[in-house]
Amino acid sequence: MSAVRSRRREGRDAWLLVLPALLPVMLFSVYPLVYGVLLGFTDAAAGLGVETHFNGLDNYVELAGNELFWKSFKIGLVWAFSVTILQFLASLGLALLLNLDLRLRWLARTLALIPWAMPPVIIAIMWQLMLNPSYGPVNRALDAIGLPGGVNWLGEAAVALPVVIVVGVWAGMPQTTVTLLAGLQSVPAELNEAAAIDGASTWRRFWHVTLPALRPIITAITTLDLIWNFNSFALVFVLTAGGPGGTTMLPSLFAYNEAFRYGHFGYAAAMGNVMVVLIGAFLILYLRAQSRRRFQ
């Protein structure tokens, strides 16, 4: 009897403690999110006295024929996958090095965190200066070793996207490295030692012992990286604003322009819905494939 009462009292206490967090979250994040999804089925637009109507699937029919949006969506996929994969490979290499007993390891571990400590806007400004066609150190270094400098890295359609991807890799490497390093440190050393005594080479030990032990962490961090990269905005917005000629127009930038430059709120929300559905579907497939692999 008293157990039931104390359980009930506990429930009430929990609600009291959580309520101050719950109320603002409901008002300023659950409600806007639901509202945002619904807006994707309306013709909402900016301006005084403009009435909003539900228009069913009209936005999506229009979107299906909007070549610029699909081009931007494709750029977004190329960006998100390239950055995530390159970031993962580069970070894995760095994490393996930082896990070795090298001299000055503490210094390297500190320096490796630098990009994390910088806000995306500053990273974008810094790389603009780095890549400046006339004063930038990148072109000067190319000149110095006799390669053709003078490339306008962020201004030429052919090179802008790859260059922006490199900056994206730079900006996100610390999180991935730190996560993988933590994973490496949790791999039992005995496993590797046992394999070494059995005569396994470094490469075979990495492939058959370290990598399988890391797999859950790899799945988690690549999934998060992919979501963050696909939704990222500030870095590319300040670096190129989507240019030159729309070659770096990520879907988040495209939808931002649609909403806040042209005032098409409903249409932009519809783009957001399409992005959520497609990226969500991909994530489900990816996570399912990974978990199946683990149980084999």
């Binding site: 509202y35 905005f233 929300a269 957001g272 969500g280 994530l283």
Partner: peptide, 24 residues
């Protein structure tokens, strides 16, 4: 509910949130 919300808040593109927030 809290765990679900924390995960969901990571996945949604900000554009879906900022338009209604701006209007609100």
């Amino acid at each position: 509910f809290a765990t679900g919300w924390i995960l969901l808040s990571q996945v949604f593109p900000f554009i879906l949130i900022i338009i209604p927030l701006f209007l609100l």
